[in-house]
């Protein structure tokens, strides 16, 4: 079994920074079948709306982790779109050219439909970078200004059909989120976060197809044994499992198949 974990925070609220912590994580993940791991950054260490310096330090820290095991980790560039088009462009170019980051990570600075997302998505299209958007079912109200409901993230993907969008957190998107995603082929849902609720993964596969679901753990908030166990313990075929755990992410990240 080969696994690509598309959603991790090896350093979270500054914990996990030591070389020994990272080495242990890599060794145990490999033993579990994980062959590549996407590092999204310590995204909440400076709150929801970090400034440009804080963003750069978070991305530098991601690069430091990637450098420890470059054949295992892939970095995503964490952004605060509210800092404006020029700041976003500068950071993305710095991280893609300097660190070989493979995607963009958006958290809780703004809703996915905020105007500041337009330059982010144009940049993603130009550089062919997938965009991973934190998503959680959210009722209309003040929280929705920062947190994206599945309806918002799916609308973003519809507005930019040339960008591959990863809608995070299947369980938190819920059945309604799965149904929102129907027919939006440039959007996949990751299995990260929340407890291992039964049946929703099978439902997502039945509604969207196994090609539209990717595995993510959201470690350290979640235990990788649990997040993997929920996929392995679901009523899916071996072929569906392989797509979710590995092949979809391999395609999305444009990784060459193993020789």
């Amino acid at each position: 079994m080969r696994v690509i974990d598309l959603h991790t925070h090896p350093i979270f609220l500054r914990a996990g920074r030591r070389r020994a912590d990272v080495d242990r994580l890599v060794a145990e993940s490999r033993a579990r079948g994980v062959v590549r791991m996407v590092v999204l950054g310590d995204v909440l260490v400076h709150g929801r709306t970090p400034d440009a310096g804080q963003i750069a330090r978070i991305n530098d820290e991601t690069a430091r982790v990637v450098r420890m095991h470059p054949d295992f980790f892939l970095g995503f560039c964490y952004l605060n779109p509210l800092l404006g088009a020029r700041a976003v462009e500068r950071e993305v170019e710095r991280c893609v050219a300097g660190y070989d980051f493979r995607g963009l990570k958006l958290e809780l600075a703004n809703n996915a439909l905020h105007p500041s997302m337009t330059p982010v998505m144009r940049l993603a299209a130009r550089l062919s970078l997938p965009v991973l958007q934190h998503t959680w079912r959210t009722r209309p109200g003040p929280e929705r200004r920062q947190q994206s409901d599945p309806e918002d993230t799916v609308a973003l993907a519809r507005r930019f059909p040339g960008v591959q969008v990863i809608m995070a957190h299947l369980t938190a998107c819920g059945y309604r989120g799965v149904l929102e995603a129907k027919g939006v082929d440039n959007l996949v849902i990751d299995t990260s976060a929340a407890f291992p609720e039964a049946e929703i993964l099978e439902y997502a596969v039945a509604q969207l197809g196994a090609e539209r679901v990717v595995y993510g753990s959201d470690l350290p908030i979640r235990e990788p044994a649990v997040t993997l166990g929920r996929v392995l313990g679901s009523r899916l075929t071996a072929a569906e499992r392989r797509l979710i755990l590995h092949d979809n992410a391999q395609r999305l990240l444009r990784l060459s198949p193993p020789c």
């Binding site: 579990r32 407890f195 291992p196 609720e197 039964a198 993964l201 235990e223 990788p224 044994a225 649990v226 997040t227 993997l228 166990g229 929920r230 392995l232 313990g233 679901s234």
Partner: peptide, 18 residues
């Protein structure tokens, strides 16, 4: 296991992998 709320295998794996 928190069956049927959770995938039964998930918490077995949590204990086995610790």
């Amino acid at each position: 296991s928190q069956t049927p709320f959770f995938v039964t295998q998930a918490n077995i794996a949590k204990l086995e992998s610790a």
